[in-house]
Measured scan of single mutants.
Amino acid sequence: EVHFESHGEEQAMRVVKMLKKRNLTVEVKVENNKWIITAK
């Protein structure tokens, strides 16, 4: 499981795309203006 924190939507979306290319399940949450990305 991979956790990634991002402060910007643009950066977060880039990471999500990259993770999805690896056929991982990606969950995105926004907490306290931080984008929290979890990949399994």
Score class of each variant (00 low, 15 high):
I37L: 02
E10V: 11
I37N: 00
K34A: 04
K21E: 11
L24V: 05
V28I: 11
H7S: 11
K34G: 03
Q11S: 09
A12C: 15
I36L: 07
I37G: 01
K17W: 13
E1R: 11
K21L: 11
V2D: 04
S6M: 15
E27R: 08
K21C: 14
K17N: 12
E9T: 07
H7C: 15
V30K: 10
G8E: 14
N33Q: 06
E5C: 15
R14L: 10
N33W: 05
E31Y: 09
E5M: 09
H3M: 12
R14Q: 07
E1W: 14
R14N: 07
N23M: 10
M18W: 14
E1F: 13
H3R: 14
V2G: 05
A39D: 00
G8A: 13
Q11P: 05
M18V: 06
M13H: 04
E9P: 10
E1C: 15
F4C: 15
M13C: 14
W35S: 00
T25N: 09
E1L: 13
E5T: 12
K34L: 12
W35D: 00
V15M: 12
I36R: 04
V2T: 07
R22P: 01
E5L: 11
M18A: 10
T38P: 00
S6E: 12
V15F: 10
V2A: 06
V28P: 00
F4G: 03
E1D: 10
N33D: 10
N32M: 05
G8Q: 13
A39T: 06
A39N: 01
I37F: 02
L19T: 01
V26H: 01
F4P: 04
I36G: 01
G8N: 15
V30H: 10
K20C: 14
K20L: 14
E1S: 11
K29D: 03
I37E: 00
T25M: 11
E5V: 14
V15D: 01
V15S: 01
V15K: 03
W35N: 00
L24W: 14
V2W: 15
V28E: 00
K29L: 08
R14G: 03
M13Y: 06
G8K: 12
E10Q: 10
N33H: 07
Q11D: 12
I36S: 03
R14W: 11
K29Q: 07
T38C: 12
H7A: 12
E5H: 09
R22A: 09
N33Y: 06
E27S: 12
T38H: 07
V26I: 08
V2Y: 14
S6T: 14
E9N: 04
A12M: 09
T25I: 14
N32I: 04
K40Y: 14
M13G: 02
E31I: 13
K21S: 12
W35M: 02
I36M: 05
A39Y: 10
H3A: 08
R22V: 06
H3K: 12
A39P: 02
N33R: 03
E1I: 13
H7I: 10
R14H: 06
H3L: 12
A12S: 02
V26Y: 06
H3Y: 14
T25G: 03
G8D: 15
V16D: 00
R22Q: 10
I36P: 00
K20R: 13
S6K: 08
K40E: 04
K40W: 15
A12I: 08
M13W: 08
V15R: 04
